[in-house]
Design a protein around this nucleic acid. Structure first.
Lengths: 132, 132
DNA sequence: CTAGATGCAAATTCTTTGCGGTCAA
DNA sequence: TTGACCGCAAAGAATTTGCATCTAG
């Protein structure tokens, strides 16, 4: 566990949302101004291998990194791309139910709620009623 | 609706899985050998805008294209990447339930079952018991 | 004609890799 | 001294864009 790796993990754990690699880079740079983006990518991968964090390939095009490795659901803002946790236990019985409906050997599932986060909700309200 | 666009849509509708852009390219090339990959990307985007197909940003890194635009769930093979439909109606009540659990204004949700498709299931079985 | 669409090649974006130098045990 | 790790720059993969040409109306 190197300095860079430790700082990345610490910063990830402070956040209430799941950042992308370049967001991690920007955040970590405040404490380690000389860190490189490739170190961030490499350390995020190592932290996944160690089982300290997980990658979310959600919404897509960019990966998001989550310091909680147990399975859980996410909410994603369709406006700003923010990804955060949903406070419910995953419905594992769904996997058994779906096993009977298809030929797949089911090993897991993923659910994502899509909508507007509180901030974007408010901003959208202001745009739609400008000044009156 | 140009020739290229029509052929792309026809071929998509024939498939029982949801291909990536380069898979669409390979398939469509059999009928239109001079089509370019950028036309495929561009036409897939136009078809989305027209509401004829939808993009699945699933599993990630590559987009998958689905000629069924109504909301539905998918199964994804963790071995070969195949993405196909699940024969169940989406549980829209989940959106109302989650609205009470978070501050989001929920507009939709997505669920994806992960596992081994029938083909990979069989291949895996053969690898694990080679020759007896 | 002309507006939109195409094919090709170059550009972008996100991510990974190669390499020489650094640091801790 | 050694092996893992770093920063930098270059390479890769997926996707998008610029541009000259083509085509249907």
């Amino acid at each position: 566990m190197t300095r860079q790796r430790r700082v990345i993990l610490e910063e990830l754990r402070k956040l209430d949302f799941h950042p992308t690699a370049d967001e991690v880079y920007e955040i970590v740079r405040r404490r380690l101004p000389r860190i490189s983006l490739s170190t961030v990518y490499r350390d995020l991968e190592v932290l996944c291998d160690y089982g300290e964090i997980q990658v979310l390939e959600i919404g897509c095009s960019k990966k998001h990194f989550d310091p909680e490795t147990r399975s859980h659901y996410h909410a994603r803002c369709s406006r700003c791309g923010r990804v955060e946790n949903l406070p419910v236990e995953p419905f594992t019985y769904l996997e058994r139910a779906f096993s009977d409906l298809c030929e797949y050997e089911i090993t897991g599932h993923r659910m994502e709620l899509i909508g507007l986060c509180p901030v974007c909700r408010q901003q959208k309200g202001q745009e739609e009623a400008p000044g009156g």
